[in-house]
Simulated assay, not measured.
Amino acid sequence: MDIVNFQIMYVTTPVPGLTYDVPSLPASGKIEAFNRTVTLTYPRGDVLVDGSGQITNSSVAFTVYDPPTTRPDNYHFLASQVIQISVPQAVYLLQPGQLTLSYDPNISAAVADQLAIWYSPDNDWSDDDNYILGGRTDVRNHTVTAPFQFNGKTEGYYAVFLADRVFKDFTSQSEAAWAYSSVMPMWAKGLVEPLPIDRTDNNFGAGNNINRLEFTTILIKGLGLPIIEKTSSVFSDVYATPEGNNGSYFGSNYSSANGFKIYDQSHTPVQYAETAARYGIIAGYPDGTFKPANSLTRQEAAVILARAANLKLLSDGDKAKTDLERIFTDASAIQPWAAPSILAAYRARLIAGLPDGDKKIKFAPNDPLTRAQAITMVYRLLEKQKKI
């Protein structure tokens, strides 16, 4: 009898065409593929459900694809393998998870915070049906990790791209140059947009004043809080479409012709405002309005930021004012309702003062908050919470 020898090889290198099938979702809360270049994590005991919300034992497949010839706008460099993740139609994780992709270790750590995970339904990265997942860059392990949920279709493609765009606002001669290291990763990961959103002059709008709705939206997106799907019209002046407010949510910076590109395509402004209200991050006015287009003052922003960060506040407002007088030259102008939040946010290094003479700083509580200042504050919070 002839003896036939078989050699079975387990391929771990993520070469194009390689597929890794998982028959059902492991209860361990983790799937690793291709020598850990792809990791899907989710809460232990999580399950897959179908379009009716019924538990299903569906399989999950991971496939490596050839590098595409297309790129998302302003993301010219592919930094990882393209991974197709397939499940049956309309299958979701009951509780969303996280997707981690390895990126090219030769990419400089100086620009690694401008890496982001992108999704495409068809592996064409230049059309309008792609969207950015963003994610937190781990420079030590050369990975990017982003929130993940199956898109309800049979398959989707995921890859890490490196952003590549120069904004004039951040040249060494500009007033906003100091904010470059905070604003660029926030933009690259899809949390903020240049305003007006259709601008083509390579300015970011960093020196423009930020309004209540934009600041709220950046916070909610950055923190990754679940968005309220069914709105209840908590505020009388925030509408589901820009036309309901004459397109003025972003004031003169907003171009309604392009829609709310600053938000992901599936949510409306009212959902962000009401989500923030539900979590106690922002409150309306006594007359029931939200005043979405109103500029924020620096002391108002500090109060919102302290709530979003769950900072512990002094209950003694007078004590907070006394402490602030040792820090800021204009502490007397700070309102009592804002003093504890400003002190807490300053001590947490989420907010800073402004130069006011030789080795002195002021807070300028009534000055409008610029986009550069606002985005930097949120960046510090997300970095502190390891979300970016």
Rank of each mutant, 00 (worst) to 15 (best):
D2H: 12
Y10W: 04
V11R: 15
V15M: 13
G17R: 07
I31Q: 06
E32V: 10
T37M: 08
T41S: 15
Y42G: 00
D46Y: 00
D46C: 10
D46W: 01
L48S: 02
D50T: 03
Q54C: 01
S58W: 03
S59D: 07
V60I: 15
Q81P: 01
Q81W: 02
V82Q: 02
V87E: 10
A90W: 01
Y92N: 07
Q95K: 13
D104F: 04
N106W: 02
L115S: 04
S120Q: 11
P121V: 11
N123C: 10
N123T: 06
S126Q: 13
N130W: 06
G135P: 00
R140F: 13
A146E: 04
A146Q: 05
K153Y: 15
T154K: 13
F161S: 01
L162T: 01
D164F: 10
F170E: 05
Q173S: 14
E175K: 14
W178E: 08
V183M: 06
M184A: 08
W187Q: 06
A188N: 09
G190D: 08
E193C: 06
P196K: 08
T200N: 13
N202D: 14
N209D: 15
I227K: 12
E229G: 07
V234T: 12
V234H: 13
D237E: 01
T241M: 06
T241C: 00
P242D: 12
G244P: 02
G247A: 07
G247N: 12
S248Y: 10
N253P: 02
S256A: 15
G259K: 07
Y272H: 04
Y272D: 03
A277R: 12
P286C: 07
G288V: 01
T289P: 14
F290N: 06
A293N: 14
A293D: 13
N294F: 11
E300P: 10
L305M: 14
R307I: 04
S315M: 10
D318N: 12
K319M: 11
K321N: 10
D323I: 02
I327M: 05
S332Y: 15
W337N: 04
Y346I: 11
Y346C: 07
A348E: 13
A348K: 05
G357V: 06
K362D: 10
F363S: 03
P368I: 05
A372W: 00
M377A: 08
L381W: 02
L381P: 00
L381H: 02
Q385C: 00
I388C: 07
